[in-house]
Design a protein around this nucleic acid. Sequence first.
DNA 1: CGACTTCTTGAGGAGACTCAAGGGTGGTGG
DNA 2: CCACCACCCTTGAGTCTCCTCAAGAAGTCG
Lengths: 259, 259
Amino acid sequence: MLIDLKDVAVSRFLAFGPLEERDYLDLASLAGHTRWLKRGEHIYMEGDQPLLALLLRGWTASSITFEDGTRQVIKVQLPGDMLGVPNLALRTNADSVTALTDVQIGLMSPHALGRLFERNPRLGALLFLISQEERVRGMDRLASLGATQALSRVAALLRELLARLQRTDPAITDTIEIPLLQSDVASLIGITPVHLNRTIQRLRAERVLRWRRSVVTILDHARLAELGALPTREIAPEPAWLPRSPGADDPSSDDTGGT
Amino acid sequence: MLIDLKDVAVSRFLAFGPLEERDYLDLASLAGHTRWLKRGEHIYMEGDQPLLALLLRGWTASSITFEDGTRQVIKVQLPGDMLGVPNLALRTNADSVTALTDVQIGLMSPHALGRLFERNPRLGALLFLISQEERVRGMDRLASLGATQALSRVAALLRELLARLQRTDPAITDTIEIPLLQSDVASLIGITPVHLNRTIQRLRAERVLRWRRSVVTILDHARLAELGALPTREIAPEPAWLPRSPGADDPSSDDTGGT
DNA sequence: CGACTTCTTGAGGAGACTCAAGGGTGGTGG
DNA sequence: CCACCACCCTTGAGTCTCCTCAAGAAGTCG
């Protein structure tokens, strides 16, 4: 059960293809202090100055609070995900991020990010791509909330989490531990906790899944896919247009000889 | 009513601060053929190879189709917005983009994008930031769909469109022309056309707005803000961490620098 | 073993959906 | 220029999903 933190930290990058040694070094230059936070603590809050971090262990949730106090959970982050990235575009944070479990995060300075764009355009472009992947996820969630009812939304969420967890741990197939209260899951898919619970009861009755405390076991993957009726998204394998790593000794780059 | 296309094309960049002359030149290198498409035509379709374009004139809508044929409108794009960006992360497009009006688009090659990241890290980082801004918009919409009811969603949508239009045309204050059918608007906010219509009737009765054909006039901005209860997002003014333009003659650009 | 949180179930009500038909509006062709 | 047609908006009626309020069961932690 020991995972190499290095692997987790770059897992989102590796989804698009292998990295050169130079890339690992440049990515390491992003790493700042690591911190542990307890479950329930906030990594950052709405209205604060933007802050950038990498989630190394544990789960977090991003939420937005309305003026009347209503809280909406926007998404959950798993190890390897970056925290606070969208807020870089804003003067103050749009969302808050809370630790769902005890978590370990690696803080990183926006300035280091800026230097990364300068020094290693390939990694800059990869960061760009990772953000696009997040946007696609957001679009799918939007489609789920906008066009389907509770049963489908639960199915779509479980399929999403399963797929994301499988990427860093292929051993996961049927059983996942979701450190979310049912009230959090309900907010995530835009229904009330009461209604989520009734929906879970239906899925249990149909033997689609087991859901005990925070451990969910999928019994009928086919039925789940049928309910959460969005296609599985495939990551672009090594997009040809990506700049090459600055270390790569390929003489065929016809461009200006900078360096 | 004549708008300089150059201005439109870079409007999203300018939101974060002014550009150097060099930046304009590098951005121009992204520009490929421009094309006109008629209302109703598709810029690209789900399942196709990703394609990159800049919307120069007119409106488009992005939508996702479920396996059962249900279509969900994800977002609308206005002049200056880029089309197809999120799909760069995927093997095949997750969404389709359709022209809501006659539109003019500028195609751009992903390879040119890759070169831009290499040649002008500042613009690379700005593209990254523009994507983050989109993510924030998506998060807000997710919050709107997940936590509020029809009346608020209509209000939030109108406020969003108003704010986006005002950015390129400050003259817009109360009246906007929305080239969307009520059925499109309904899908966008995750309700049925019938229910949207009833909701509009309520807003009309309360004298919050006029909505005739595709022309919407806001009569009561305060009430609208009250209903669409999300804070206004402010773009970060010239983030300090952005790399500087490669043309900028700053002698201290070598990587010195403390921790 | 309590005290607390979280999950579960019940009952009643409201927002949103479906089906369906009537009323405008703009476009097209005679 | 008018008549017709197609498309869209609007309204009605009935139903269902989902919500709210509330209380009881089960699990967790000190």
